[in-house]
Design a protein around this nucleic acid. Structure first.
Length: 424
RNA sequence: GGAGAGGUGACAGAGUGGCCGAAUGUGCCUGACUCGAAAUCAGGUGUGCCGGCAACGGUACCGAGGGUUCGAAUCCCUCCCUCUCCGCCA
């Protein structure tokens, strides 16, 4: 959530941010509620102070004495008033909070202004598209693909979007995960193995609730949600905590399966590995000093880029425009890998700086050497999402003989030079 | 899942209706002592919100949410969590 103090001081800054992000929320209502809330709090607290003082007097009186009983009668009325004022406060507070939570984060000045995805800037492109296999074809059209990634069995067992990875392909996914995790470790991220379901408070803190609940699978009997990304449990690790300045920055990585309902994305771009309900991903998360978050975003992006470079996959870096960055984001890069068979770019990582927006919502703060407790800045990025990376890899490295050449960096983990699709 | 016990500040641990934002101890910070350190002594040491330029004042917070009462850390209800025993189980 935003800093209400800043909104009071400079509403225009937020008005602009909202229009740039094309979000719909009523700033005047927020400011009005803020005003009323403060007045209400003032009234309640002064009445409450009066009550406390009177109760103080009572404590000194002899219980049951006439003046005591008289005082009780007198205070009953005051007590009722206090209760009313308190209830009014709570109501206003709740309305106020709901509105404050609906205001998006302000985009950084470096974020290009744009109206749709065509305004995202391609910052750089790495690798040569021509270097990809001349035999490339969409991964789902590779001979024997179904032997290795079994969608029909997934449909039978669970439903669409839950494939089985079989034999060498299962091992290959594991090799990718191990490669990603090891790279992250060497880049200074501490590995965590996190819960795959989270409670409501956690989903609220990272912003999946209340607006994006359609994205998550729900376990209604327990009131829990299956995670759409490791970001949720990993970020919530420090929820409601005060960190020491000397601890910052904290860098963590975590592998988890991710579960996404993807409601509404029916029919488009969903073939093969392009979009699944369950997929594996390594996520990188940082908690940093507010002054360092934008440089930490650059290094986060580079950490993700390095993975694609080592895998030899051509990719491009997009600086997302104001319309395309999400609600809590201040700045966001997307990494898109080239899938030579489909001849299209696939998003495999999104690296974001949330500044203090998510931290304020999740109540993650730090104690500066001087001054008062302050929200940290949080960042995260994929490093990387498996299925699309895998799709590009299969397509780009497809050989004439129908096998896929395994990148050097994966061989220590996979143990073989080629991925074969047809069982001998 | 059943039975019992319990959840208090950074930690340990008192407190069972008003004198409790909360004893005491530990830790931490400052000062004294010391060449320096240890030990000792003295003082300080939470977070949110509201008001205030500030000093500061007010208010809330003793697992969470309701309730009783003039007044709740303390009594009642619901929920969550931890521990012990039993059951079940990878």
């Amino acid at each position: 959530m935003i800093d209400i103090q800043l909104l009071r001081e400079n509403p225009e800054r937020f008005r602009k941010a909202i229009s740039l992000k094309k979000f719909d929320c009523n700033l005047d209502l927020v400011l009005d509620l803020d005003e009323r809330r403060r007045t209400q709090i003032g009234e309640f607290e002064s009445m409450r102070a009066k009550q406390k003082a009177a109760n103080q007097e009572m404590a000194a009186m002899q219980k049951g004495s006439p003046e005591f009983l008289e005082k009780v009668q007198e205070l009953k009325k005051l007590s009722a008033e206090v209760k009313e004022l308190e209830a009014a406060c709570k109501d206003l507070e709740a309305m106020w909070l709901e509105q404050v939570l609906s205001i998006p984060n302000v985009p950084d000045a470096s974020v290009p202004i744009g109206k749709d995805e065509s305004d995202n800037q391609v910052l750089s492109t790495w690798g040569n598209l021509e270097d990809c296999s001349s035999h490339a074809k969409p991964h789902y059209d590779i001979d024997g693909f179904g032997n290795r990634i079994d969608f029909p069995r997934g449909v039978k067992v669970t439903g669409a979007g839950f494939p089985f990875y079989v034999g060498p392909m299962a091992r290959f996914v594991r090799a990718l995960l191990q490669f990603f995790l090891e790279e992250a470790r060497q880049a200074g991220y501490t590995e965590v193995l996190a819960p795959l379901v989270v409670n409501e408070a956690s989903a609220m803190a990272t912003g999946q609730l209340p607006d994006k609940e359609g994205q998550m699978y729900v376990i209604p009997t327990e009131g829990l949600y299956m995670i759409p990304t490791a970001e949720v449990p990993v970020t919530n690790f420090f929820r409601d905590e005060i960190l020491e300045e000397s601890q910052l920055p904290i860098r963590r990585c975590g592998y988890t399966p991710c579960f996404r309902r993807e409601a509404g994305s029916w029919g488009k771009d969903v073939r093969g590995l392009n979009r699944l309900h369950q997929f594996d991903k390594v996520e990188l998360v940082k908690w940093v000093h507010p002054e360092k978050s934008f440089e930490e975003l650059e290094s986060l992006r580079k950490d993700a880029e390095r993975l694609l470079q080592k895998l030899g996959l051509p990719y491009r870096v997009l600086l997302m425009c104001t319309k395309d960055i999400g609600f809590p984001h201040a700045k966001q890069y997307d990494l898109e890998v080239w899938a030579a068979g489909q001849e299209r770019w696939l998003e495999v990582s999104s690296c974001s700086n949330f500044t203090d927006f998510q931290a304020r919502r999740a109540n993650i703060r730090f104690r500066p050497k001087e001054g008062k407790v302050t929200p940290v800045h949080t960042l995260n990025g994929s490093g990387l999402a498996i299925p699309r990376t895998l799709a590009a890899l299969l397509e780009n490295n497809l050989q004439e003989d129908g096998t896929v050449l395994v990148p050097e960096v994966l061989r220590p983990w996979f143990g073989e030079e080629r991925l074969v699709f047809n069982d001998a």
